[in-house]
Design a protein around this nucleic acid. Structure first.
Lengths: 213, 213
DNA sequence: GTATTGTCTTTTGTATACAACTTTCTTGAC
DNA sequence: GTCAAGAAAGTTGTATACAAAAGACAATAC
């Protein structure tokens, strides 16, 4: 029989806070005092503190010692840096995917591509971003490189925060989302270099860049 | 006047534990019960708990809920994955370094290269690895990419754990360390592709691989 | 001999109390 | 009116107490 592990309050608070940050409910710069969170969640300060410390280690929260913690806000220079690293990591993922692994993951990858396209159709902007993240995450997962996956997860969280923070314009969102299908077809045909080039353009566009600059 | 911030016990324990893990004093798989650490450090369990949670988030500690925490041990398949990501990140760093930034960092980089060579000469193996880490860290720092630097720091911690865990043979350590100087000269001449190729060989050797496999 | 149950021990998870520090507000001097 | 010093309020940092869960071990049933 599968064992049901009841997760600790600390874990639950951690998950909730992370969701609130990634959904934009808690935005960059906002104070998150332990006492008021404790009241809000109906627990003592202990599990709140642990969750906040963990989130700080994760990079989503900034602690000012003996003062208060805030939701981390990302500067535009950091955004540039994140985009650069993201390109490198996704390109590494593409290099690492072999045929067998692609076959294993293609179903998940296409599902998120389709969901993303659908969300675009009905104008659900939040859903577009969510499914876009899941698409890229699935691509990276197909690399089967655990170190890469866990690093990318962390980076993805920051990317989600950035999207909320900078609230990019809608321009070309359709074109951008359409690239997912092209990536998949290039991957399927083993045209990795072309796929990597497309990813470079894709991400630079996503993150508000001129790819040629 | 510069303000002296006295760091919290929690921070101190965090730093100490991290050092003990990275130095090999605490090895992979070892139990780290809160109570005994509390006695050892002469503090209560509270700061110990916070430090352990943060280290778990950092990836150095594995928590088994309601049971105990252990120092994370890295499987050989994860070691492969880490090496692959490491190559990609260092190559990205090389790509990102411009002349001005190289000029700013060359002093630090060379110092660690020299220290590493010296440590090799006097047969101080631990020091060789420490300075080697610092050399690579300095190289990455020259990229001026904050996201890359913080990701690499985390990865570097795992690399240090691996070195202790697998206790690689001495074979070719001299040859390997000698590559540092070649990297620097390639960088200085702007031969980035050659430098990246060398880094690939260097890391694969460091981490116990056949580069051609 | 094996499996099961119940007890004991160990260790974690959470709440709470208090001390210490930071910030803010107020008061007073100039 | 402005600045500085001191008091007050708010928040964090740490210790401690207790409850609850997991694992170890012995006793018992079959």
């Amino acid at each position: 029989m599968a064992k049901l592990i009841q997760s600790s309050l600390s874990d639950q608070v951690y998950t909730l806070l992370k969701e609130q940050i990634l959904s934009g409910e808690l935005q960059g710069g906002m104070k998150i005092p332990e006492e008021s969170l404790a009241e809000e969640f109906g627990v003592s300060r202990t599990p709140i503190r642990e969750a906040i410390r963990r989130l700080a280690e994760y990079g989503l929260v900034t602690i000012r010692p003996r003062t208060f913690a805030t939701v981390t806000s990302i500067t535009s220079s950091e955004a540039d840096d994140i985009a650069t690293v993201r390109v490198a990591l996704e390109q590494l993922a593409i290099d690492s995917i072999d045929e067998a692994s692609y076959a294993d993951h293609v179903e998940t990858i296409s599902r998120h591509a389709a969901n993303c396209q659908y969300a675009l159709g009905i104008g659900d902007r939040a859903k577009v971003f969510e499914e876009d993240s899941l698409f890229h995450m699935a691509l990276v997962a197909a690399s089967n490189n655990t170190a890469l996956i866990s690093i990318y997860e962390r980076l993805d969280a920051k990317i989600q925060m950035l999207r909320i923070q900078q609230n990019l314009p809608e321009d070309g969102l359709g074109y951008y989302i359409g690239q997912h299908a092209r990536m998949m077809s290039l991957l399927k045909n083993g045209e990795k270099e072309a796929c990597k080039a497309l990813i470079h353009e894709h991400i630079k566009h996503d993150m508000g860049y001129d790819p040629d600059q």
